[in-house]
Structure formats: structure tokens, C-alpha cells
Amino acid sequence: METSLRHQRNAEKLKRKMRIDKAFKYLFFLAALLSGSCILLIVLFILIKGIQPFLPGYRYGQMDLLQFLFGTMWRQDQAVYGVGYIVINTLISAFGALLLSFPISVLTALFIAKIAPRKLSAMLSTVVELLASIPSVVYGVFAAGMIVKLVKWLASLWGISTAGGSSLLAVILLLAIMIFPTITSMAVTAIQAVDHELELGSLALGATKTQTNFKVVLKSAKSGIFAGAILGLGRAFGEATAVSMVAGNKLFGPTFDLFDITRTLTSTMLAGLKETTGLDYDIRFSVGIVLMAVILVSNLILNAVKEKVGNHG
């Protein structure tokens, strides 16, 4: 009977195993490099294309950068390109959607994770996942057919005439529905990760279930829920197809009236993209840079806020 496995160690075999291991390590590294370089390539390409219109010697006539960044009118037919008001409109619609969707999402997540019976909870999670997987164009069709009618009816209650319902409010409602599954599923994960002992402790101290849910569970899951909000906001910023179907694409701005039409950065980039050439085509890359900057800055701010509220208190 063998007492040791040592003699079975085959140096040749071992070497081969190590080689394969090493090869796989490089394979993984290559995959990471490939996906990483994609981002780099995209950013570089858009930067290079987008900066061109503002450089001297641009073949369709140099654009004024300040006028572009702070302009309050976007009219291709008069060659006036100002994204200032569009940035404001985009921020309003995205944060408006977040404001509307966030409380509902968090409460839904709480229900799914803590309150609902197991079967109902499983069913609801599936519903949320399904919502997340619906293509944005379907949301757009729904919004163009239903949400605008709702908005039109709402406006008529106040005696306001709208452009067939296309309005800032319609955009906000649409985006709120679209980012709801993103925030909810992140919040569910965060809430489920909360240590059960904490809850038991709270209950043992005499707190009610509701008190525990709000004051202990939500507080501990804060960081994760906030991450969900950031992801949701990213989706709200980036949505183009559905938004452009209900925004109305106003030529000047900014829009603060809920029933007035609006224009977002993404819908601006999309409008007529396939049919256009020259400056009108190139300038869309510049809008892309602005959009990326807006998303980056708001993410940085939100992350800073998250750090602040997430760790203390």
C-alpha cells in the first residue's frame, strides 16, 4: 500500500499544468485589455471627432466654443449650435425622473426583499427583471401612445394646451418608468445583504417591523441603494430613442414648464443622424463629449455624496 503520493508527482506533467495555467492568465489579461481598450478607443475617437469643429482651419468654418457651450438655441438650418440649454434640460429630465422613481423603487425593493411572502416576492423580482429587459424602443412606443395621452389629459384639466402631450413631463414619466427596474433590482440586492442579526437586534429592542425596516435595514443598505440610483441616472441620461419620441425637440430653451416641449442631449444627437453630413454631422460628436462630461460630473458628485452618507450616520 502506498503511503505517499510523492512519487506520483510527475515533473513533466506539473510543468505542463503550470504552462496551461500561465497561458490562461494571459488569455484573461488579453480579454480585459480588449474590453478596456474599447472604452479608450471610443473616448479617443469621439474626442478627436468632437473637438474638430472648434479648431482653426476646420473645413466647414470654425465654431465658437463658448457659443456652443452656453448657447440657448439649436438650429441646424441657421447653423446655430448651442448646447447650454440642452444640458440644463437633460439634467432636469434625468433628475426629475430620479426624484419620481427613487422613492417608489426603494419601497418596492423593501417589499420584495423583506415584507412580501416568498412566492409573491419571487414573482415580483421576475417582473422587475422583465421590465429591465424591455428594449427602449418599446418603451418609446408605449410613451408615444399612452403617456402623451395621459399628459395631454392632465394638461387639459388645467386648461393648458400641449403639443399633443409631447412635453417635459412625458419625458420625466417615461424615464421614471425606465429607470425603475434598475434602481429596484440594485436596492433589492443591497437590502438582502443586510445582516439579519441587525434586524433581530432591532426587533429585540422593541422596535416594530416598520421601524426596523426604515431605520435599520434601509440605513444599512444605503450605500447599495445609492449605487442603484447612480446607475438609474446613467440610464436616464443615456436614453435616446424613447426620449426623442416624446420630447418634441424644442429649438430653444431651457424648459422649466412641465407641459412645454423639451430637448435632451441624446435626442439632439439622434435627430436626422442618418441623413446628415458636414458640420451638422461632426457637431454631434461634440454633443457626445458634452454628454459624457455631464454624466461623469454628475456621477462624481453623486459618488461623493454616497461616500458621505454611506459611511457615517
Binding site: R75, G164, G165, G248, K250, L251
Partner: peptide
């Protein structure tokens, strides 16, 4: 080049027909 700035921009021929079809004042 003299279109009113209050105009509502739509994305296609079909979109135009749909939007005007739902707006009594369009």
C-alpha cells in the same frame, strides 16, 4: 431658414403624421 423657433421637431414622415394626428392644434 426662417422657421419659427417654437416649432416641434419630429423624427420622420410617419412620426409627423402621428403627432399631428394626436394634436388638434397641430
Amino acid at each position: 431658414g426662417a422657421l419659427t423657433a417654437k416649432a416641434i421637431e419630429v423624427s420622420s414622415n410617419g412620426d409627423m403624421a402621428t403627432k399631428v394626428g394626436t394634436d388638434e392644434n397641430g
